[in-house]
Computed example of a mutant assay.
Amino acid sequence: MVDNKGIFNFQSHIEGSNQNVGHGANQLLTSSQKLDLEDLTKELLDSLNGIELQQEQKQELEEVIHAATEEVSLDEPKNGILKIFLEQTKNVIDTVNKTPELISAYQKWADFIQSSMT
């Protein structure tokens, strides 16, 4: 769903979706994995500081990253929602002049998210 400013509204997309959203592997993250996820998320967010991005796009991207991180931390993360978050994050990142730090941080974060989707 796109609002009148042309910004994708993830929450209304998820709530309004008629899509059959599957659940993850009912796998709880260990304390170590939660710390890894926090570190990967922080690294990705920090790497956004080194790129040129409009403030609205940056805020939207940060919200999606946080939402994906929260979703994967749930007892039963929904794979369909995680896929949407990963696609949207990748779409924005693909449009910017990427630094090596951003490429590395994004790949590690995305790999962690994808590993929780079974």
Rank of each mutant, 00 (worst) to 15 (best):
D75F: 11
N91W: 09
E43N: 12
V92E: 06
L86M: 09
Q33L: 00
L86Q: 10
L61K: 00
N79M: 11
L74Y: 05
G50A: 11
Q33A: 03
E56Q: 05
A68R: 00
L40A: 04
E43T: 08
Q27D: 12
N26Y: 06
A67L: 04
N79A: 10
K34R: 10
E71C: 11
L28M: 07
Q54I: 01
E43R: 15
E63G: 12
L82H: 02
L74I: 14
E38P: 07
G50L: 12
D36Y: 00
E62H: 06
S73V: 00
L74S: 15
D39Q: 08
T41Y: 09
L61V: 04
Q55E: 14
H66G: 07
A25Y: 13
V72G: 02
D46M: 05
A68H: 03
L86G: 03
K78C: 05
S47T: 05
S73T: 02
V64C: 05
P77A: 03
E60P: 01
D75G: 11
Q88C: 09
S32N: 05
L44P: 00
I65G: 12
L29G: 01
E52G: 08
A67V: 00
N91A: 12
L86N: 07
D46G: 08
V72T: 05
V64A: 09
Q55S: 10
Q59A: 10
K34N: 06
I81Y: 13
G50H: 01
N49G: 13
A67T: 08
D46N: 12
L28C: 07
L37C: 02
E56N: 09
Q57W: 09
T69P: 06
N26K: 13
I84P: 04
F85A: 13
E60D: 11
L48E: 01
T89C: 10
K78V: 01
I65S: 11
L61P: 03
K42C: 04
S31K: 12
E56R: 13
E71A: 09
E87P: 04
V92F: 06
T41R: 15
L28H: 06
E76H: 11
T69Q: 10
E38K: 15
K83E: 07
E56Y: 09
L44E: 02
L28W: 01
L61W: 00
Q55T: 13
V72Y: 00
L28F: 03
T69Y: 00
Q54D: 10
N91S: 11
T30L: 02
Q55D: 12
K42I: 08
D46F: 14
V72S: 03
K78Q: 15
K34H: 04
Q55I: 03
Q57F: 09
D39A: 08
Q54S: 11
S73Y: 04
E43I: 02
L28Y: 04
L48M: 02
L28I: 15
H66A: 12
K90F: 05
T69M: 13
E56I: 02
A25M: 03
Q27V: 11
T41F: 04
Q59V: 06
